[in-house]
């Protein structure tokens, strides 16, 4: 077993399962967190992630196959996806992928799921398919406010890490999203994105 990444959420190991190349994702204890809080967060997220990854598949969203879930150790063994993170793609490929990401997010939202951590490092381009990963912060919700939170995070990432091509990537994403959810819902959600953006400003200290 080889440690391939110490992510913010958990550690990723390369391993085998039934002779298949696979990933072991472990949500290890975070020493800085209070133990009660820590336990609750890790368990809840492990369970949610596994459940939602499976559910998303049923609407046609490509996600890794889950082989094993162990709640005690807060770990999941899942299919290894060979490919490149969208975050690391060339600008032109990134712009095109954003359109597909729009379709994917639209599909999730249409089926009442918010991803919760929409960044370009949670999509892998594998053999011309886009695989969505990291559903640790996902939630079942159809509320437009929650969907707006999803979009806003992605917009924030596009406007920071990929700032040079932000206009194109965002437009590309929105067109893919609109194709699934329709123009009315798109308008509703993007309006809420603006509302969120205007909060967290220097509010008058009451």
């Amino acid at each position: 077993m080889k440690l391939i990444k110490k992510g913010a959420e958990g550690d990723l190991y390369l391993t085998t399962w039934n002779k298949q190349k696979s990933i072991l994702k472990v949500r290890k204890k975070k020493a800085y967190r209070n133990p009660l809080l820590d336990e609750k967060i890790r368990r809840q997220r492990t369970i949610k992630e596994a459940q939602i990854i499976v559910e998303a598949k049923s609407f046609g969203v490509d996600t890794p196959l889950i082989y094993l879930v162990d709640i005690k150790s807060c770990s999941i063994v899942m299919q290894h996806i060979e490919g490149t993170l969208v975050r690391d793609l060339s600008d032109s490929k990134l712009v095109r992928c954003c359109n597909k990401i729009g379709y994917i997010v639209g599909t999730l939202h249409k089926n009442g799921i918010m991803h919760g951590d929409l960044t370009t490092s949670n999509f892998i381009l594998s053999k011309n398919k886009l695989v969505t990963i990291d559903f640790g912060l996902a939630n079942k919700t159809s509320k437009p406010e929650d969907h707006a939170i999803d979009l806003r995070l992605l917009k924030e990432i596009l406007g920071s890490a990929h700032v040079y091509i932000m206009k194109k990537t965002w437009a590309s994403f929105l067109s893919g999203y609109k194709a699934i959810v329709g123009p009315t819902r798109l308008a509703q959600v993007t309006n809420l994105v603006s509302v969120i953006e205007s909060r967290g400003r220097y509010a008058t200290v009451v």
């Binding site: 924030e156 406007g159 920071s160 700032v163 967290g200």
Partner: peptide, 25 residues
């Protein structure tokens, strides 16, 4: 601080936001 709660990194002449509070600081 009282007025801000943000995660920022400098890129292309501006401080870019990578995370912030959705409501109060």
């Amino acid at each position: 601080s009282g007025g801000h709660t943000m995660l920022l990194a400098f890129m292309k002449e501006k401080w870019r936001v990578f995370g912030e509070t959705l409501d109060i600081t």
